[in-house]
Design a protein around this nucleic acid. Structure first.
Length: 782
DNA sequence: CAGTGAGCGAGCTTCCGCTTGACTT
């Protein structure tokens, strides 16, 4: 008999809480949601008030029957699921699915796992908030309607098995639009001017300071003119400004900021961050890792204060309460922090766990530390022959504060880091000597492609997705073939560097740099472009970046009891469903077809489009179906949106006939393993250094003969009794084979002297030793 | 491994947000 049964969502949470509550309480967990909409007929009756039909998924059946038994035995059931929309719904589902009578139920909530918080929650039970549950059900139903009506449209109009949804389709849109932006970007070049100046105050050694010109030149000519003007000019300190700056620590981690920092500082993919954080959480080292809150418990604030004063002194402590910025935060948990700040290092952790723990520890503690105070000096350097000025900056840390512990990293596209050195003491009017001035050609850059973490950040800003779904979204869009994470090589590009030296000479140098190389970024696939264009065209409101925010507002109104759930769903579904029906009837099949131009040989049209087995280039006549179209698959790395006419025409240059040998054609073509020559139904790979488009007849014949020679050298002995049985020379020395089984040759036996009978015998013995070779394929393929 | 691409039709795919394990070539 159980007196008090407490149900929470997470088993790790359950064991912690059990310790706080004492003997009269048994604490168990639901492992998240226990029911979901049925798959059949969408699980929603759209005709009659959007009535959902729920069922317990197969992998939850056991858990639910366990919970049912416990609930029946208990005097009181405390539903202690999270204090947010989903948590409220889980409590309601528990009540319904476990058939718990209302008078046995007490609903309690807390958003930090500390003893006072739990005890207070038990003192203040309430009942289930039906409005909040309604809001969750509306969210769930709407997502199902969108996903299960939109996806089949894609199956029909684009390709089977594709998917669309409120969250994933917007994530894909972000990536596609960024890629288009990059494609359409027109680079501009300009010249950056910087100078090195010598400062001398007589007594000490000369000091060199670096300063940048306040003007960028669009033309090489004006850059050179400026350098010329600097020859023999006087340079002096025109103005000197000192300003005190304040730097404030970042708030403690939420799921999204943890994912971003772990990506920048530790190079973790978001999935790894979550896996490692889960380990730390289950071992009791950190608080819950799926949270949108920056709040710290009173216990955490007090222990942080103690830790900081003891280790750095009280001047380093600054009490701070952070407010969540993101609009849709539900704040059911604390920020991510170490459970105990005095656990600086934990010896039992793996390297990854230790690195992530260290990051969490520092960030949480630094958030309670003082601001850093920095003195920033800006020096304007006048040029006697020009109105432009050089500007040098220097920084001195007056008080380090939180910087003692933690510096937040920045993304590469958030602007160049200023190199602020320490400046020597300077006075207004002081002369400076020019050591060198350089004008370097630079190019403007488009926005950077999304990394996983940058996409999470963007989604969070738009209020799309939740802490528990950020990592799964990244996997989903990759699993569905919309996005690939990969490395792409850049191109080399020349730039000019003009240098004026202290001897008064200007030299010009041409240098090269690599541009456009990208690593670990998210790239859209061909199908992503096609699906996105299709969805944006026919379902602009669903694909609107503000769609989720609009829905969230309505869900809030439902939670407040201001609007009715059925009304809200009806208002959304009626026009949406109408558009789905019309799109199915009227829209053209989307192939992402692009016209590239004319084939000079035939005068026919050349297009590139998506076909059944992938992207193809096609030469055809749109007016005359009698002419059979020619098609060729795109090669790896080629994409519909970037393929040029020349590249498309190259695809049709193979297969070609390179000549004749022994009365048969030499066919040159490209296969899965690269280019090959086919002759007498045998295949000969063409090495990398020969271009298959220009390989000659004699080169083909050489290839064939050298392969035949190699095979002859391999063949030690064959038998007329059975031509499949051979003695061959392999990588590890001579062996016997019958095409299926390979056998070793006993020591001391001369390979040339093996008889047919001996060969058969060795093969039989070898077959017994490893009877399952090639048949042992057990495990299922994912 | 060396190429496919017509058309028919059965039966399948698919959403988001809560939670953890169970799996190895």
């Amino acid at each position: 008999m159980i007196k008090n049964l407490v149900i929470v969502e997470s088993p790790a949470k359950a064991s912690t809480i059990e310790k706080f509550l004492g003997k009269d309480f048994t604490v168990t967990s639901s492992y998240g949601h226990i029911r979901d909409l049925a798959k059949k007929d969408m699980g929603i009756d759209t005709e009659k008030g959007f009535i959902p039909s729920y069922e317990v998924p197969a992998d939850k059946k056991k858990k639910v029957s366990e919970l049912k038994k416990m609930a029946a035995e208990a005097e009181t059931v405390w539903l202690a699921t999270d204090e947010d929309r989903e948590g409220e719904a889980i409590s309601w589902h528990l009540k319904e699915a476990l058939h718990i009578p209302s008078n046995k139920i007490k609903r309690i909530v807390f958003h930090e796992i500390t003893k006072p918080a739990i005890l207070e929650a038990v003192q203040n039970p309430r009942s289930i908030d039906d409005n909040l549950v309604d809001a969750q059900q509306s969210r769930r139903i709407l997502d199902r309607l969108v996903g299960f009506e939109l996806s089949p449209v894609l199956w029909k109009k684009v390709r089977p098995s594709l998917s669309a949804g409120r969250v994933q389709s917007v994530a894909v849109r972000l990536i596609v639009e960024r890629e288009k932006e990059i494609q359409d970007f027109v680079t501009r070049d300009y010249f950056n001017v910087s100078g090195l100046f010598r400062v001398s105050d007589g007594s000490r050694k000369d000091v060199i300071i670096k300063a940048d010109l306040d003007k960028k030149f669009d033309e090489e000519e004006s850059a050179i003119n400026f350098l010329r003007a600097c020859i023999g000019a006087n340079f002096s300190v025109e103005d000197l400004e000192k300003k005190e700056l304040k730097k404030t620590p970042a708030p403690p981690f939420t799921t999204s900021t943890l994912q971003q920092e772990a990506a920048r500082k530790l190079r973790f993919p978001v999935s790894k961050t979550m896996r490692v954080a889960q380990n730390l959480y289950e071992a009791g080292h950190i608080t819950y890792m799926r949270t949108d809150s920056v709040n710290l418990s009173d216990f955490a604030l007090a222990t942080a204060r103690e830790m900081i004063t003891d280790n750095f002194g009280s001047e380093y402590h600054h009490f701070r309460k952070y407010k969540t910025k993101s609009v849709n935060a539900q704040e059911a948990h604390e920020a991510i922090r170490p459970t105990y700040f005095n656990n600086r290092k934990i010896s039992t952790l793996t390297r990854d766990e230790a690195a992530l723990y260290d990051l969490i520890w520092k960030r949480a503690l630094a958030s309670q530390m003082s601001d850093a105070r920095i003195e920033k000096t800006t020096v304007d350097i006048a040029v006697s022959t020009s109105p432009h000025k050089f500007i040098a900056t220097g920084e001195v840390i007056l008080f380090d504060g939180f910087l003692k512990l933690y510096i937040e990293s920045r993304d590469e596209d958030e602007g160049d880091e200023e190199d602020s050195a320490i400046l020597p003491p300077l006075k207004t009017g002081q002369p400076l000597w020019m050591k060198e001035i350089t004008a370097t050609q630079r190019y403007t850059r488009p926005s950077a492609r999304y990394t996983e973490a940058a996409l999470v950040k963007k989604l969070e800003e738009l209020g799309i997705g939740r802490p528990s779904t950020y990592a799964p979204i990244i996997s989903t869009i990759q699993d569905r073939g919309y996005v690939v994470k990969e490395e792409r090589e850049g191109k080399s590009r020349n730039y000019m560097k003009l240098t004026l030296s202290d001897s008064g000479k200007i030299s010009t140098e041409e240098k090269t740099e690599i541009t456009g190389a990208d690593k670990g970024k998210l790239f859209p696939t061909d199908i992503a472009f096609i699906v996105n264009d299709f969805l944006v065209k026919y379902f602009p409101n669903i694909l609107d970046f503000k769609f989720t925010a609009k829905i969230e507002k309505q869900l809030d109104d439902i939670a407040k009891g201001d609007i009715d759930r059925v009304e809200m769903l009806k208002k959304f579904y009626q026009p949406f469903h109408k558009t789905v029906r019309e799109t199915l009837e009227t829209s053209e099949r989307a192939t992402g077809s692009r016209e590239l131009g004319k084939d000079p040989a035939s005068g026919l049209d050349v297009i590139v489009r998506m076909a059944k087995y992938g992207a193809v280039a096609q030469i055809y006549s749109p007016d005359n179906p009698e002419i059979k179209p020619r098609m060729a698959s795109l090669k790896k790395g080629q994409r519909i949106d970037t393929l040029s006419l020349e590249e498309a025409l190259d695809l049709f240059r193979l297969p070609r006939i390179a000549g004749e040998y022994e009365g048969e054609e030499l066919v040159v073509a490209e296969g899965r393993f690269g280019p090959y020559v086919k002759h007498q139904s045998k295949f000969y790979s063409i090495p990398r250094d020969i271009d298959p488009l220009s390989i000659t007849e004699s080169e083909c014949i050489d290839l064939i003969n050298s392969k035949k020679d190699a095979e002859a050298a391999r063949n030690i002995k064959s038998f007329t009794e059975d031509p499949s049985v051979k003695v061959l020379n392999g990588r590890f020395g001579p062996y016997i084979t019958n095409g299926k089984v390979n056998a070793k040759i006993p020591k001391g036996k001369e390979p040339r002297e093996i008889t047919f009978a001996e060969a058969l015998q060795y093969i039989e013995e070898a077959a017994k030793k490893e009877p399952v070779k090639g048949r042992g394929g057990r495990g299922k393929k994912k």
